[in-house]
């Protein structure tokens, strides 16, 4: 497996069930953006399953014939390669009151768009490392989105992070949807920002 964590979503575009699913996921992501932009990292963390894999590989300039190498493979360089525990670690840092890179805090806006979502096959979830038992017992969905994150910091600092996300969503026992896998592909080679002090 090299690039995005799942095959492209090809959602049936009509039908009540497809529309309901689309609406549900849309609201999920709108809430997620609200948490991230509203300094509610604890609430944000609750949107992820315990077996989370959260991954943002780096991207390199390669000749077309070597394009398959243009996204860093699993195990290679990455901006994020996280479990739920390690994300919690990062969130605890923000909450320490001494995370100077975000104190005073930046102003951010997460725009999440171009949503496509479809039900995932059981073995698709297994291929992404979900246990067979979990894959059998829970419905999973593949959701793709594009994002544009604007960060405005201190006086003049402006950063734009553009990228795509491919999520594997899980229907939990309580009926809610949570993110079990997230692959983030930033549209940058050299990251054009002094740091990443937010999440995508």
């Amino acid at each position: 497996m090299s690039t995005p964590a799942a095959a492209p979503a090809q959602a049936p575009s009509t039908g009540t069930r497809a529309m309901e699913l689309h609406f549900e996921v849309h609201v999920l992501y709108a809430n997620e953006a609200r948490y991230l932009d509203g300094d509610r990292f604890g609430d944000w963390l609750d949107l992820f399953t315990e077996d989370l894999v959260y991954w943002a590989p780096t991207r390199t300039n390669r000749l077309r014939r070597q394009q398959r190498l243009s996204v860093s493979a699993p195990g290679g360089a990455a901006f994020f390669d996280e479990t739920k525990d390690s994300l919690a670690w990062r969130v605890r840092r923000f909450e320490s009151g001494m995370a100077w890179a975000e104190d005073p805090p930046s102003r951010t806006r997460h725009l999440i768009t171009n949503l496509l979502v479809r039900p995932a096959e059981e073995d698709e979830a297994v291929e992404q490392g979900v246990s067979e038992e979990t894959a059998r017992e829970h419905a999973h969905y593949v959701a793709e989105t594009g994002f544009l994150v604007y960060r405005n910091r201190l006086e003049h600092e402006v950063d734009l992070y553009s990228g795509g996300r491919t999520d594997l969503l899980r229907r939990e026992a309580d009926g809610s949807l949570r993110v079990a896998r997230r692959t983030i592909l930033l549209e940058q080679n050299v990251l054009l920002a002094k740091n990443i002090s937010t999440f995508f």
């Binding site: 780096t58 860093s72 195990g75 290679g76 360089a77 990251l191 054009l192 920002a193």
Partner: peptide, 11 residues
């Protein structure tokens, strides 16, 4: 490890 992580900063 495979890959180089690159970023810019004003400094």
């Amino acid at each position: 490890v495979d890959g180089v992580t690159k970023w810019v900063l004003e400094g």
